[in-house]
Design a protein around this nucleic acid. Structure first.
Lengths: 334, 334
DNA sequence: CTGTTAGCGCTTTCAA
DNA sequence: TTGAAAGCGCTAACAG
């Protein structure tokens, strides 16, 4: 249980500490034979440099923080996977923080990060309406920050998002184009900001491409039974011929509602849904989905962050990634 | 963009570096007035101790590594949430690593962790049949390790698991008790070890509680269409009256298969499924699920790890958490 | 109660 | 080509 550090290697080999250090970094001013010896011993003892010491010395940690609302969510799971792919390839480590939608927690996390714990921060902000002094702190301290998905217009950092507004238009228009005259929008719980953005796309599409006068927005709470009831009531009262679900779970509930009400998909009613994991799509061969490029958002955000860390230049600019509409004529040979 | 460190605070206040350090740690040997001054300035400048320096000095990092196969998976998402709850409450940070089922990656991650990057490791091992020299390394270096979910019998670390075998028996017995005479088991892709454990529970329950002579094990590949076909073929050929799905996704596919084949759930066939996020349960009021305590596994594993880190005593012992069977007589007033 | 100093493990001048 | 030594920021032993 001896500590395997440079000092120990040096003593074992009768070399100076600095020589060993240089050898390990493959410096050109060390003779091949010495390098050989050092490498051999280091390997044999599985020498690993002490991260704290290197970090302290070099003022960099090879770690980035990822701060997200939470994890029980297909979208963020996929984003993290994308981030991980990039950071892993470039030798960076991920520190993970959940804000649970609590702005105060976000502030406290960011505060602990301003003094050299990480080389950069990837953040999906908790409360877009709130102040962002804490983020300004990061900029002050020269710690690169890239925002993704939930961004703040008031920050001029690099932002990576997807086209929620435009793709909601696309989705709605798709229903219109396939003949729907009365389209309802299933809006996810108000705690999820994207529900509003997508609603705006829905409204815009109705105005622009449809004769439908009154929008049909169903507020669906997080509670499944309440959401079921809300959709069920709307279905019976309004008899729409098209439904646009803002998130995958609502499409699943909607599917069940239709079954209950003896409404056939897609004969009586067409359904389109945002979807990340495509579980809903397993249900019905005719369910068309619109998929956010979650994994790519993660990859892109991470790539941007590492780029900025490297250049030490806090570049600006936004990246907007496109969602994809997936039409299923027949899955599982229906 | 001045560096806010103890030295800087000391200079500003005309105090010695050590005095400031002690004041910040609220040492009893510092006068209240001095403390006051130090606290005030530290707060005003948002002083945050340099994690590398503290870590180097104290030989501890307040970070733990979480190493899992991947993240696009309800189970591990929930586990991480549980881990996060505990670590966050106790001031620890999470370093996240994905092995993607690659044993070599796992080895390489663990190797980078042996030299003081983290205070402890939470691991769900990638390949249970493989060697675990790398884990022995951790023990050698005195870095606490807690295994969860996918554990190795050959290691004598603390292990936190759930009762996959027993709960598979419970699930199968539940079908038998409700009158099923011919029960099929939908086995998840062979890359998922738990598919086999649960199969053994299924077999055991048949032997012990049922007259059913031949088990019906359907091998379901990861590919949805192939899984659909496998289940569909079995359904037509064997006409079982009960189905036990080893994972939630297979229950969803099975649901669709039944619909295709015009087989009614639960009138013609009873279905029970392992399920973490209960998406499948939204589908059918009569779907009974068996739920792993994923969140609790995370909490427990983290709690055990932090306990060991604190005591510096590598305690042993296993924790097995119980799955819960959830019977739904009627959801969504069917 | 406060200051001086050594040292955690590493990298990097500066010297030899 | 190698060695000696300083210093990254922090804490704690020792001294006053």
């Amino acid at each position: 249980m001896n500590k395997i550090n440079i000092k120990y290697l040096a003593k074992e080999l009768n070399l100076a500490i600095s020589t060993v250090s240089r050898a390990l970094r493959d410096s050109h001013e060390i003779s091949p034979e010495t390098k050989e010896k050092v490498f051999a011993l280091a390997k044999r003892l599985n020498y690993q440099p002490n991260a704290n010491a290197s970090g302290l010395r070099a003022q960099e940690t090879k770690m980035i923080a990822v701060v997200i609302p939470d994890m029980v969510n297909d979208f963020f799971s996929l984003v993290i996977s994308g981030i991980e792919k990039v950071t892993q390839a470039q030798g960076y480590h991920i520190l993970l923080y959940f804000t649970h939608g609590d702005h105060a927690l976000e502030v406290s996390f960011i505060n602990t990060l301003v003094n050299g714990r990480v080389d950069g921060v990837l953040l999906s902000i908790t409360d877009e309406s709130n102040d962002n002094e804490h983020l300004a702190q990061l900029n002050d301290k020269g710690i690169p920050l890239v925002l993704f998905d939930r961004v703040s217009e008031r920050m001029d950092n690099v932002k990576v998002t997807s086209d929620n507004y435009e793709s909601a238009i696309t989705a709605t228009k798709h229903l219109i184009d396939t003949g729907c005259k009365k389209i309802a929008y299933l809006k996810v719980d108000k705690s999820i900001p994207v529900g509003n953005i997508r609603k705006n796309g829905y409204l815009q599409a109705l105005k622009k491409y449809s004769k439908q006068k009154t929008p049909l927005v169903v507020e669906c709470p997080n509670n499944n039974d309440e959401a079921f009831a809300a959709i069920h009531n709307m279905l019976l009262a309004e008899k729409p011929d098209g439904i646009f679900a803002s998130v995958e779970k609502l499409a699943v509930i909607c599917y069940r509602v239709c079954e209950q009400a003896n409404v056939k998909i897609p004969e009586d009613i067409k359904v389109i849904s945002f979807s990340n994991l495509q579980t809903a799509a397993l249900l019905n061969p005719s369910l068309t989905t619109i998929t956010q490029p979650a994994f790519e958002i993660g990859e892109t955000a991470a790539r941007e962050l590492l780029r900025i860390i490297r250049k030490k230049g806090s570049a600006k600019g936004d990246v907007v990634l496109q969602s994809r509409l997936i039409e299923r004529k027949s899955t599982f040979r229906g």
